[in-house]
Write a protein that binds this DNA or RNA. Structure first.
Lengths: 114, 114
DNA sequence: GGTATATACCTCTGAGTCCTAGGTAACGCA
DNA sequence: TGCGTTACCTAGGACTCAGAGGTATATACC
């Protein structure tokens, strides 16, 4: 339970990683910073969640990794979306829309419509 | 991971239970059926998730329980939102809006705005 | 040359959530 | 009597996330 800031994350981290990689290959650190910046720090991506998620997505064949050098001249593992990953992104994105819409319905439906 | 149908639920079950009870007291079975009907079965509420969640919310003092008789003339435990529960509902609802908005931003922002 | 900061990677472990699978019981109807 | 529905419950395992810790290198500053 704890505080609200981590309450709802389940599953969406994978989805956001996939989405971020759909634009261009990126390394873990960069993915985290991008998501945080993009959401004005509403979403904070912890490394203890990020790296296991990345490894899991790689094991599932949704992304592939390759060592490279960053613009800061540092060694980093660049992840790239696979074809399977693109398909998963599309289906997960669609399901997220359905899911979020359903939750909104519950949160906004008035008792009268029961 | 598994299938998409249970992918995103974390935390939102509590929120939806709280919201359902904000209209009127209800029993577990009724809450589950209402959420499913309200979302056209997009969200399926499993009993193995529902009852533990209800007990947890009760332990936290967000809802209180009382035995009664349903319209079907059966014994059932009716749950009612407490004052603390109402406050929690308000803050969780607000955070859900922030969270869902942030996820949408990631899913819809184009690479150009990076 | 030494140190701090930022960049970049990783894993272990605990806490928490959800589901599967099982069980109990009573009502109404055929 | 048996069946379907309503209504409750828990034990166990799978999984996810976060906190805390660790490694290493480039650059900037002193």
């Amino acid at each position: 339970m704890a505080d609200a800031s981590t309450e709802f994350l389940k599953g969406t981290l994978d989805l956001m990683i996939l989405k971020t990689l759909s634009w261009a290959p990126a390394h873990g650190y960069g993915i985290a910073r991008w998501i945080e910046r993009c959401t004005d720090d509403v979403l904070e991506v912890e490394e203890g969640s990020l790296y296991p998620a990345l490894h899991k997505l790689e094991d599932e064949g949704l992304i592939t990794a390759e060592w490279g050098i960053t613009e800061h001249n540092r060694r980093a593992k660049f992840y790239r979306l696979t074809t399977v990953g693109k398909r998963r992104l599309a289906s997960s994105h669609a399901y997220w829309a359905r899911f979020a819409g359903a939750v909104s319905k519950v949160l906004e439906t008035s008792p009268a419509s029961a």
